[in-house]
Design a protein around this nucleic acid. Structure first.
Length: 803
RNA sequence: GCCGAAAUGGCGGAAUGGCAGACGCACAAGACUCAAAAUCUUGCGAGGGCAACUUCGUGUGGGUUCAAGUCCCACUUUCGGCACCA
């Protein structure tokens, strides 16, 4: 048995300083390969999820180095945000110290897993050298009109006292503390992410990623194609007062409009307040609904509520019908135009609303609408006929849909319109521990960006990390920070006191690894060009609709302003599955019965821990943690260790040639695809054969150690040194011979009438005649070859004889 | 409700349309041992047969094919995403 504690320590110490694990900019001969594992979140100890997430990336990096690639495999810390700030508030720990301790801890623990990161490129998002460039990117966004400040209703977490983006409040809960999110009216910095919707969909199409993850992103972006219609607003006598626009994806039902519904925050109400006779009632309704949290608004699906705007009517442009106008909170202000046409016969929400307010209905598509609406999915599938729709009556829906859209456009009633659910990114937080905005407010000059040469705007030290009574950021309490001279006019002015969300720093970090110490640019353009897009990005799937979309957004923007040479940040994205605890819940630092990877490493060693976790399930699959079965890995590595005493002969032997070639082929493919579970099983199969024969040649052992090294780097490095006196890092990946992955003679499967009836031993290059002759010679088959109908022969696979 | 992914022994899980259950765990029998542990050998989907062998078998029901876990249609369940998005 080998002493894993001593051996693993020895190699980990060496790797930490080893120049061969560093990426080389502009390597003269080697092609580049960029493997990225997502930032460590500086919050405490590494958990099992890290073991599952990092090891395949490490294996891929080690594999690619053997293959002769110049591998960039960096790591850093996502260190702004709540963990450090909470530690500061609760325990009085300085966030800077918290981050540096946390990062040291993460590095020490990564080392214990045997990860071959390039430590020379490590940084944290809260390093001023780094956030200088996060601030610089914000200034570019601002200067290019992609950042704007606006008062508006935004997601707000009452507990964290801060504004949240839609991405941070998925499901109506604060992403950090789980509190119900409410809507408040605040001054908010927005980034024009919505404008990038179509480009983001392009990134989604091009990236190599699992379909379910792509769908999650497409759902989040939420593209829909429809028609935007202009409706006149008139008084009871038909005199035109105003206009509104509605958005619909169901123009085919336009003859069925019997009312129009606006979101409570729609601006028509303020504009027409003098023409609305029940304004008191309307104001009460707005007050009641607008302050509800978005979660409440969408969760109480059954409770329709609304308020009629007495005195206002809308005119249906296609038939001149005059219909009432309502406010209702089922219409969302932030989507489309914040106003919809209501066709109760063909939309269930409108149907319920019409019942509640006793609004008449007009059926315009065939079907039974006596109990509920006949909705889009149903009538499109049946391609039903239109009725009560003027000249379109009798036409089927699919034809009518496009013809009516064309008609509406031709007559100038409206236009075709594409909408996206994704909203602009609300980009400020009322917190201390984030990047300060490099922006100054001047009474005379308005919003003034800081001069780029004055960056970074460093976060001032404080010991008061709590927001003030108005929910403003702690920075607002630091006068020396707040009060400055306007860079334009020199008069007294004030800095922005909010900080950026912690997603800011993670939205471009892969670029910085290409040139982490650059003081003149976010990274040197030629280095960015050299390293290009990340070849394989691994990490959790929980970031798919947040971080990864932000990453697409920023990279697109930086590409468009010429700061980076590529539009796609990542070529391939692999989503790591979760490790679940006994109860089937996600195992993380916070779970009660979570097992630390260090516990497993301490007991069994890093190589065993690495292999066991990845023998449990595929990389993208969830798996329940168990020690059950770990003996299989322990046993396997024990057999590997004993190979040292079984060496016989030097070259690859005829006896093991086929097994060795098959092993190398299989494992090469598996590392490339991060299929570590089957790579492990291939290694086990090889060892089984060696055990059977009782010996292995030196060259066979040499190649085997290289093949196993990405999975179990410690034991294989040690054995390589002991047996060959060399460092395995200097070796190259063994080639395999495609002609030597199967034996010369194989049992060839024989089917009769599609059922397997046995095998015959034939040469691997056997022709159909060879196989037929072998079958004739074997009396177990007993086939009357004079009366067969057909023979299907698939070379190398199977023969099927149909009688 | 819409969209996506998936369903294989006692368990974790393998299978470019071509021998289902690789590999590992658990289990059983045997070897070694005074004994146990460790290790090694063998067996291990279900039914029938002394046996050679044979029938059935990859969530359910249909289909395509010489051949289906794999492709197509419908359904069930599980997981994930979106969700009063007009």
């Amino acid at each position: 048995m080998y002493d894993f504690k001593e051996i693993e320590k020895k190699w980990q110490d060496r790797w930490e300083k080893d120049e061969r694990l560093r990426a080389v900019d502009f390597h003269p001969t080697k092609p580049k390969y960029y493997v990225l594992y997502e930032f460590f979140n500086i919050s405490g100890n590494l958990h099992m999820g890290h073991l599952k997430g990092t090891v395949p990336a490490d294996a891929l990096a080690r594999f690619k180095r053997f293959q002769g690639y110049n591998v960039l495999f960096p790591i850093g810390g996502d260190s702004f945000g709540l963990p450090a700030e909470n530690a500061a508030i609760k325990k009085g720990i300085n966030p800077v110290k918290f981050v540096s301790d946390g990062m040291n801890n993460a590095m020490a623990q990564s080392k214990k897993i045997g990860l071959s990161f390039d430590w020379s490129r490590t940084f944290c998002t809260s390093d001023p050298d780094y956030y200088k460039w996060t601030q610089w990117i914000f200034l570019q966004l601002l200067k290019n009109g992609k950042a704007y400040k606006q008062k508006g209703y935004v997601n707000f977490c009452p507990k964290c006292q801060t504004v949240l983006s839609n991405e941070d409040s998925q499901g109506g809960k604060c992403d950090r503390c789980g509190s119900d999110v409410v809507q408040v009216n605040r001054d908010v910095w927005f980034l024009k992410m919505k404008e990038y919707s179509e480009k983001l969909l392009g990134n989604v199409d091009r990236i190599d990623m699992a379909e379910n993850l792509k769908e999650a992103q497409r759902n989040w972006i939420g593209k829909s194609e429809g028609v935007q219609l202009k409706l006149d607003i008139v008084d009871a006598n038909g005199n035109k007062l105003d206009e509104i626009e509605i958005y619909t994806t169901c123009i085919e039902t336009v003859y069925g409009i019997t009312f129009v519904v606006l979101a409570p925050e729609h601006d028509l109400v303020e504009r027409q307040q003098n023409n609305i006779s029940n304004m008191d009632e309307v104001r009460k309704y707005i007050e009641k609904t607008a302050l509800k949290s978005e979660f409440d608004r969408i969760s109480k699906v059954k409770d329709k509520s609304g308020c009629k705007l007495e005195g206002l009517y809308a005119i249906n442009p296609v038939n001149g019908a005059k219909v009432p106008v309502y406010l209702a909170d089922f219409v969302l202000g932030g989507y489309g135009t914040g106003a919809v046409m209501a066709v109760p016969t063909h939309d269930q929400r409108d149907y319920e609303f019409a019942k509640l307010f006793n609004i008449p209905m007009i059926q315009v598509i065939e079907g039974d609408v006596s109990k509920c609406a006949v909705e889009k999915a149903e009538y499109l599938e049946k391609n039903s006929k239109l009725i009560n729709s003027g000249e379109f009556s009798g036409m089927n829906v699919l034809d009518a849909k496009s013809k009516m859209a064309d008609m509406v456009v031709a007559k100038g009633y409206g236009k075709k319109q594409i909408n996206y659910k994704m909203q602009d990114w609300s980009f400020n937080r009322q917190r201390y521990w984030g990047e300060p905005f490099p922006v100054i407010f001047c009474e005379h000059c308005g919003v003034v960006p800081m001069d780029e040469k004055d960056l970074p705007l460093t976060l001032p030290a404080t010991d008061d990390y709590l927001p003030n009574a108005h929910g403003d950021s702690p920075l607002s309490k630091i006068d020396s920070f707040v009060n400055v001279k306007c860079p334009k006019c020199g008069r007294p002015a004030k800095r922005e006191t909010d900080t950026m969300p912690n997603w800011a720093g993670s939205s471009w970090y892969w670029l910085r690894y290409c040139d982490p110490h650059n003081d003149h640019a976010l990274a040197d353009y030629d280095k960015l060009k050299y390293w290009g897009s990340v070849d394989c990005y691994t990490g959790g799937t929980e970031h798919i609709t947040r971080h990864v979309l932000y990453a697409f957004f920023w990279q697109n923007f930086l590409y468009e302003i010429g700061a980076v040479p590529t539009r796609d940040p990542f070529i391939r994205k692999m989503g790591s599955g979760l490790i679940l605890d006994d109860e089937g819940k996600k195992m993380s630092k916070s779970s009660k019965n979570g097992i630390s990877p260090l516990e497993v490493i301490d007991k069994y060693g890093a190589d065993v821990a690495r292999m066991h976790v990845h023998f449990l399930a595929g990389y993208e699959d969830n798996c329940q943690w168990t020690f059950k079965g770990i003996e299989g890995i322990v046993n396997f590595l024990d057999k590997v260790w004993k190979l040292q005493d079984m060496i016989k002969g030097d070259e690859v032997s005829a006896e093991h040639e086929v097994e060795l070639n098959a092993l190398i082929k299989k494992v090469s493919e598996d590392y490339e695809n991060l299929k570590l579970n089957t790579a492990i099983s291939a290694c086990m199969i090889f060892i089984k054969k060696i055990k059977e024969d009782g010996w292995i040649s030196r060259e066979e052992l040499r190649r085997f150690l290289i093949v196993l090294n990405p999975l179990a780097p410690h034991i294989t490095s040690e054995m390589y040194e002991r047996v060959f006196g060399l460092d395995i890092l200097d070796q190259s990946w063994p080639e395999f011979d495609e002609n030597k992955i199967t034996k010369d003679e194989l049992p060839f499967p024989v089917q009769i009438n599609g059922k397997l009836r046995g095998t015959v031993l034939v040469s691997k290059n056997a022709t159909q005649d060879d196989v037929v002759n072998a079958i004739k010679a074997d009396d177990k088959f007993n086939i009357d070859f004079d009366n067969i109908r057909k023979i299907i022969y698939v070379p190398g696979k199977i023969i099927n004889i149909i009688c």
